[in-house]
Design a protein around this nucleic acid. Structure first.
Lengths: 202, 202
DNA sequence: TCAATAAGAAACTTAAAGTATCTTATTTTT
DNA sequence: AAAAATAAGATACTTTAAGTTTCTTATTGA
């Protein structure tokens, strides 16, 4: 005899799976209880009884997946590099996996609910901002080169964009962006990196 | 005689202002044509006739403000520092202004439409992620210190979090995150910065 | 076998987005 | 200055989707 009604853990697993499918395919805006219910083959009241909001469901579905993947562990990853460079590379390489999971919930949100023209507009705004950012760095670097603080040459484009991206992220995530933080960024990170990339010849 | 009906530029200016007010106070989710119409003291059809979506209106309202602020210029800022460090500081200091404008449109979106419990959940997820990130860097740094690649001491917390923030931002903005980019990050930015912050004594 | 629990179907309520129509203030043209 | 054209603004309507209620019945456990 085949079961016609799932319940308990089995039912919830199906709901979580449907939730993740919707998130990764269509983003958070499409994550409505009605959509989840349909994809999971159940009905709206079942979802409403358990979760208060689509976001709550989304987060539990992501956590459920992380638990399944890592047997309950989020942390701990063994580093096997032979140098700081290799260890860091490993760290970020693996991180992108967890970020992707995280992003399927939170970040993807964005572009997915936009109409074609809206999306194009947003891309244009971002593109324009990038150009401005790069110009700003170019000016500062050129002045430093004229002063003799930096040697000749150009910086990788990612290196130029990084500080702007970071600041945008911080504002986005409601993190502090104060003078102390900018000082850390400039003196602790950028100046050493720029000097490393463009060493003076003397 | 007082005008009872605005039109043309005057009317649009009022709509843009109302749009920006809603964006900065309540975020993009509250930016409905009905809300804008009410705050601007006009009616829905007026808005529907001009813009196709709230996002389109949002972007035009932001651009309108930037134009007003800068007399049509987005770019160009005079650097007056006496060193690379000072120039960069100026650059980012001023950038935060434009970022804030930008953010009022796009980033603020987020946290603003969340219920209290949802917001708390999101904060907790972010907090947990941060802790994991810091642990990962600590392990890599410790191994480097044991190897003798780095000297004793600890890194500023912002410096530890930066690469993770950056990666998250890149994924969010649909930017490429490939091995080449991670290599630039590690070898071009982090390793020089870490060596600068934790110099070896010999 | 019976009682309790919870799934699922279906219909209903509510709220908000989007649209259509019409009146009339304002501007433009003759 | 008067008439015609344009567009604002009020109002009511349509449509869609979220959220809720009620009821039937499958499943579980005593």
């Amino acid at each position: 005899m085949t079961k016609t009604r799932r319940r308990g853990a089995e039912l919830e697993a199906a709901i979580y799976q449907a939730t993740r499918d919707i998130l990764s395919q269509d983003g958070l805006t499409q994550l409505t209880f009605a959509n989840v219910a349909e994809l999971a083959g159940t009905s709206k009241p079942v979802i409403y009884r358990r979760w208060n909001s689509p976001l709550e469901l989304a987060m539990m579905a992501i956590q459920d997946k992380i638990k399944m993947d890592n047997h309950g562990q989020l942390d701990q990853l063994e580093l096997t590099g032979k140098s700081l460079s290799e260890d860091l590379f490993q760290t970020f390489k693996r991180l992108t996996v967890s970020i992707n999971t995280f992003n399927q919930t939170f970040m993807v949100t964005w572009m997915h609910n936009l109409t074609a023209t809206d999306s194009e507009n947003v891309q244009n705004v971002l593109k324009a901002a990038k150009k401005i950012d790069i110009n700003a760095i170019n000016r500062a670097v050129q002045r430093a080169q004229e002063r003799g603080e930096l040697g000749a040459g150009d910086l990788p484009i990612d290196l130029k964009l990084m500080p702007f991206d970071w600041l945008r992220y911080r504002v986005f995530a409601n993190e502090q962006v104060d003078d102390a933080m900018i000082n850390t960024l400039v003196d602790g990170l950028l100046v050493p990196a720029y000097q490393h990339a463009l060493p003076t010849t003397n």
